[in-house]
Amino acid sequence: MGTVPEEDPHDDAAGRLRALLQEDLDAGFAELVREYQQLVYTIALRVCGHHHPDAEDLAAEVFLRAYRALRGYSAARLGELRPRPWLVTITLNMGRNNARDRGRRPLQVTLEDFVERSPQGDVFDDVAAGLDRRRALAELTACLPDQQRDAVLLRHLCELSSAEVAEVLGCPEGTVRSHVSRGLVRLRGLLAERYPALAAGQGSGGTGTPVAQVRRQERISGHRRG
């Protein structure tokens, strides 16, 4: 996994935010919202089955919950705040509660969600025509085991560091790395199997990877990590 840097590029932002929150809670909170609303919304959107109004509601609830908690925090506690994993954890918890209320599963996007939103024609036709990578990827991530999907999405969609993902999911960093790497390998395999056109990477100059080769690599990779 040497291709992905492990340092947290947001450390400066977090430090600045901690200082601001200690000085003036409302001003600090305004910055917190500006800095992390995209992240919270991204997760909220997945938790809410890609329903935009619900996701915006959830994201707003998350920040209000965060604000109410921050009001009760001492300066010392604000000084220790790690805003990104903290907000992600709140989002996932509230999302799970909402999902449980509605009988949905966490961080899961079902194929039906996307088929419903595609009134004209078949999803596969769209993808085959190279029209919608997003839809294909969303479908494929839904096929991953829960732990792998959560880890992969937090790491590469939400761009959390491995340490932050570990904090959010409550497991060791090594476990996160292995979930992420297995998840990616699996996704690559699924992609090659179901959407060879996408796997070949149109426009990026890459060459197609034969399905057999991907499978072999998956096995090798599995051995290495296992």
């Binding site: 291709t3 992905v4 919304y41 991204t42 707003a60 991530t141 992969v152 969609l157 996704l187 690559r188």
Partner: peptide, 30 residues
């Protein structure tokens, strides 16, 4: 193996593309 790593990085980049368009919650919160 180099191709495999590149492929993985590319899948990771594709995942980042799943991020939604910009959202502004300030008006709703304050």
């Amino acid at each position: 193996m180099a191709t495999g790593e590149d492929d993985l990085a590319r899948v990771a980049r594709m995942l980042a593309e799943l991020a939604p368009g910009p959202v502004d919650l300030t008006g709703r919160l304050f």
